[in-house]
Design a protein around this nucleic acid. Structure first.
Length: 683
DNA sequence: TTTAGGG
DNA sequence: CCCTAAA
């Protein structure tokens, strides 16, 4: 999908010519897809694939193959990337580094000529030199690291336009964060001083959850190792170790296909800026030739002056924050390894596995724990935000603009089973089976949900709906619905159709949200439930223990519930509670406050008062995702009530009288405070 | 989104 | 806990 994104930028997916021997036309036709189990697909694979393709294409290009001399190719830079799956006959040879001259220019793009970058040991010099065009960037290693490597991208014409990527050693890293035994931290500081203002990077909201997943993995895998060589967990392999098996090279992109869109832009440029498209090395590899004289200036403008040129390719933005004319674009390195991504990877070190600079952005392949991630710093326009593709992502874009999806689970219609206590387990099973059969009997339909919203228009293309948008992948969900829905025995009409909230193929994805208005009956939108969410809901005990789970709570278990529409007559299957609400509006399970929670609540209210429930939430229940500020307010209400009634009338887990006294005191106190706002509000 | 209250 | 009017 990420690559699909690239489509917009002129990167036409990834296609790998099957075999070098194939004729060109054959190659074009039967370029094979590297079939990889979805969960094995990783960003690096994608890039490697691309690299493979690029290389192969280059090899077959007389003009460029000239440069592929043994001399120039450092042996260590020759890499065989083999699918870990053993795709025997399809071993890609990727030789991305040594002296290959590549140019990936499209309209206004970074032009990278040389790339020597061996991530495997981090001993090579990184050098991305200009291919001779003034407008291109130089990327050179400033420090020969060991300790620190500095890749500097700079515009040869103007030093101030530079991008820096600092890579510090593990040692440096562990000093900062011992928790993550990553090997190398990439402190990316992209600095494009363009003027006065300063933009720093924030976060990538769109992919935050994905990232969380990664972080979790990190923690799990974290072994405390602080030295690369000792860090040999599955997820963290020292670069040098990796080298043998699967050397992960940085590579410069080569020739990118011209996409239709770009072709159009091409024309545009032709007219506008004396840019003459020149197909270089096959028609889908191209670059522009510009007249030298006005190039440098114009070029920079194209790069950075977003407002002056109506072209999507302007400037590199970091996570959506872009450089604007006269402003400085910067991702400060001081923050952490995550700098580049700001809040995305807070202080999470990552290993730079490769990078790729191409016309429309900078791609970094980073290892964030167990799987490589693809970070794309895109030019401003198109999506604005960098894309992160977790390695284990189940969806990706393949050639031919196909969207590949792996559906791990379906939401299934809710079932409601009513069965006497005296019934046997066997009869329970049968009853459930009956209910299920009832539904299946009528046939099933599949619903597609995007960001919680049901996609009802069957005629829209994935592209139109945005499903092919990488940002939305994790918001994609499917549901099973009784197909009899068109003329289903409607039992209740009071409900209105409701959006399903969740569920992507990923188990840990957030599920529905709490408060929904009554929603329509389940006929068309049968209540669905995520089977995978039958996770033991966490017993939130203490209010504060860090809750690392991704809202596990939200996936409260919802036992079997009914599918009203389907229960025609089946005695065992009856409509649930008038099926008042459907899927999303399912009433949350009851979770009585524990004494410790009450304690925390009381303490917070004593401190903050009774009108600041949000603050109370943040202060004392920030980690209890299932406790909303409304819940806290409600609880306080009941606490006050409880405190006022006699102990005999109280129900549930008894709250210590001491706490109830404090409740009354605090309540009285804050009531008084409200009466006289002038007074200082401290206890 | 929060707050404040009734259900 | 839910639902909402108001802010």
């Amino acid at each position: 999908m990420v690559l699909q994104k690239r489509l917009d930028y002129g990167f036409d997916g990834y296609q790998v010519p099957p075999i070098p021997q194939a004729t060109r036309s054959d190659r074009r036709r039967c370029s094979f897809k590297r079939k990889v189990a979805d969960n094995q697909m990783c960003a690096f694979d994608l890039l490697a694939t691309v690299a493979g393709k690029l290389l192969l294409e280059e090899e077959s290009s007389p003009s460029s193959s000239d440069r592929l001399t043994e001399k120039e190719l450092s042996p260590t830079l020759q890499v065989s990337i083999k699918k870990e799956q053993q795709d025997e006959d399809k071993i890609l040879r990727v030789e991305p580094c040594g002296g290959l001259e590549s140019m990936i220019t499209s309209d206004c793009s970074v032009n990278v000529a040389k790339s020597k970058f061996q991530v495997g040991s981090f001993e090579n010099k990184v050098e991305l030199a200009s291919s001779g065009y003034q407008e291109s960037f130089d990327c050179t290693v400033v420090d020969k690291f060991k300790k620190k490597m500095n890749i500097e991208l700079q515009n040869t014409g103007n030093i101030s336009n530079s991008a820096k990527v600092d890579i510090c050693s593990l040692d440096d890293l562990t000093l900062r964060d011992r928790k993550h035994p990553a090997l190398v931290s990439v402190e990316s500081s992209m600095t494009l001083p363009l003027g006065t203002d300063h933009f720093s990077c924030g976060s990538f909201p769109a992919i935050r959850e994905d990232v969380k997943l990664v972080i979790r993995d990190d923690d799990e895998n974290s072994s405390g190792c602080t030295h690369p060589s000792s860090t040999t967990t599955k997820s963290y392999r020292a670069p040098s170790c990796v080298g043998n098996r699967r050397l992960r090279n940085g590579f410069a992109s080569k020739y990118w296909k011209v996409t239709p869109k770009l072709k159009r832009e091409e024309k545009h440029f032709n007219a506008d800026s004396e840019v003459k498209p020149v197909y270089h090395n096959r028609k889908f590899c191209y670059k522009y030739q510009r007249s030298q004289r006005d190039y440098p200036i114009k070029k920079r403008k194209l790069y950075y002056d977003h407002s002056s040129v109506p072209n999507p390719d302007r400037g590199i933005s970091c996570k959506g924050i872009t450089s604007f004319p006269g402003k400085k674009f910067s991702c400060d390195a001081s923050a952490s390894s995550a700098t580049m991504c700001g809040g995305l990877f807070p202080s999470l070190p990552f290993l730079l596995m490769g990078f790729c600079i191409f016309s429309r952005g900078l791609v970094l392949v980073l290892s964030l724990g167990s799987s490589p991630n693809l970070i794309i710093l895109t030019p401003h326009a198109a999506s604005g935000k960098p894309v992160c593709l977790p390695g284990q992502y189940g969806t990706f874009q393949s050639e031919d603009s196909h969207v590949k999806l792996r559906i791990k689970s379906f939401k299934v219609p809710e079932l409601f089973i009513e069965i006497p206590e005296s019934a046997t387990v066997g009869s329970l099973k049968r009853t459930v089976m009956e209910a299920v059969t009832k539904i299946l009997g009528g046939g099933l339909r599949v619903g597609v949900l995007l960001q919680g919203k049901k996609l009802r228009d069957d005629n829209k293309t994935l592209l139109q709906t945005g499903i092919s948008d990488d940002n939305k992948l994790d918001a994609l969900g499917f549901s099973l619905e009784p197909s009899g829905s068109l003329a289903p025995p409607l039992l209740h009409h009071e409900d209105s159709p409701s959006p399903l909230t969740c569920d992507s193929p990923q188990p840990l994805t957030r599920c529905w949200s709490y408060r929904y208005s009554p929603t329509p009956i389940a006929v068309l939108d049968p209540p669905s439930l995520n089977l995978e969410s039958f996770v033991e809901s966490d017993h939130d005990s203490a209010p504060s223990p860090p809750d690392m789970s991704i809202d596990k709570n939200l996936t409260d278990s919802r036992a079997l519930v009914v599918v009203p529409a389907m229960n025609v007559g089946a005695s065992a299957v009856v409509p649930a509670r008038k099926s008042k609400r459907s899927e999303a509006a399912q009433r949350r399970i009851r979770r009585p406050f524990s004494v410790s929670e009450v304690e925390a609540l009381v303490q917070a209210v004593e401190k903050l008062g009774t009108g600041r429930w949000r603050d109370v939430k943040l202060r004392a229940f920030d980690n209890a995702k299932h406790r909303t500020y409304v819940d806290l307010k409600d609880k306080w209400k009941t606490l006050v009530h409880t405190a006022r009634i006699s102990p005999q009338q109280r129900r549930g887990e008894p709250v210590p009288q001491e706490l109830l006294d404090r409740v009354l005191n605090a309540h009285a106190h804050w009531a008084k405070q409200q009466a006289k706002p002038e007074t200082c509000r401290f206890l």
